[in-house]
Design a protein around this nucleic acid. Structure first.
Lengths: 195, 195
DNA sequence: ATGCTATCTGAACAGCCGTTCAATATCAAA
DNA sequence: TTTGATATTGAACGGCTGTTCAGATAGCAT
């Protein structure tokens, strides 16, 4: 046996990334073997190397794609006028976007240490760019007198941690809908920044 | 060679736990081998099994000890009168305690999935107990009219996520002292709960 | 129908994994 | 000084690891 009927890189490639993401998120990068990923895809381990130079590159690709899609989605988001509207937009966007990509978010927080220093720096830079988006909103709000904050840098970190935390407990079909959660978190954030 | 001069279970035992915690936190549970831990302790791999039945039990021990010490420390904390004082106490305690045990906190958040279902349930129950401590404060504050919260359960999760997030960026000797950070976070939490 | 290219297999590589255990050296008590 | 308990080694177990590659088949353009 060699090439399989119906085989196509347009199908196998994405399938590998999808299964890798699922398995890495579920068991952790180090705990998942290339043979497990291959089995999930329905292929032998050697075939994976047509699509990635090595295991770490597979992880890096997932993390970088996620961060770039996060930034692109935020930039494509409609922006209201004023810092207060922008902050509400950010809060709702962050919760909504992250909930639809729970596995990727999980990976981005858990598996950074499995990256080489160079790859780690790339992801860190993207994450920093995203944080700066929020900090810019907080600084603008502070300047226009809409917010009252002791420290915009700390507020940035606090708000992002708080919002990302939703992913750890939210379950579809639970007590509260995603929209309700967004609203409740927005209420707490709004108060916290003194708006 | 067999037994080493100066060898003692009172020394080797704690040393194994300390090195395991350090290595697990640094590289991840799955990525660290028993031989690496043994080498860090200065012993052969086989000797570890005088102190733990297997690798997972080593991790479980670290997580359970941490959670129990966290709960014990909180219970030993002096309690002020009223929900507002209690909440400030909690905020400052959580940041302070977690910063002094960064490795254990990191492990407790990252390595839960490497536990067997039974062991996972034990840690989850301890974590739940801790969360309930905060929620009780929020409920009491709500009842006595000190706080104004849309949902105490969500506020609990939001506050804990926000506070634990400090561990990801705080560095000793950085721009702000631990006490200043405590105060700033307390300010944000206080506003968020409407107090 | 032919030939080229894309895709995949299956075996092999060297090395590491968690764990067990008989043998052995040290320590502490008698 | 002898004896028994304690602590450790070092080798061995079967199995899994990431990665490479020659060989083989499927798809596609001619």
């Amino acid at each position: 046996m060699a090439r399989k009927t119906g085989s196509h890189s347009d199908i196998t490639g994405p399938k590998i990334r999808a299964e890798a993401q699922r398995l890495f998120a579920r068991h952790g990068f180090a705990a998942v073997s290339m043979r497990q990923i291959a089995a999930a895809v329905g292929v032998q381990a050697g075939a994976l190397y047509l699509y990635t130079p090595d295991k770490e590159a597979l992880l890096f690709d997932l993390l970088r794609s996620h961060m770039e899609e996060l930034l692109a989605a935020w930039e494509a988001e409609p922006r209201g006028a004023g810092a207060r509207a922008a902050l509400e937009q950010f809060v709702r966007f962050h919760i909504r976007f992250n909930l639809t990509r729970a596995e990727a978010v999980f990976l981005s927080y858990m598996e950074l240490r499995n990256l080489s220093p160079e790859n780690f720096a790339v992801i860190e830079a993207l994450r920093k760019r995203y944080e700066t988006e929020l900090e810019a909103i907080l600084k603008a709000g502070q300047a226009e007198g809409a917010f009252l904050l002791p420290d915009t840098k700390l507020a940035t970190m606090a708000i992002i941690a708080m919002l990302t935390g939703v992913n750890t407990w939210f379950r579809e079909g639970g007590r509260l809908s995603r929209e309700t959660v967004e609203t409740i978190y927005w209420d707490m954030v709004r108060k916290a920044v003194g708006a």
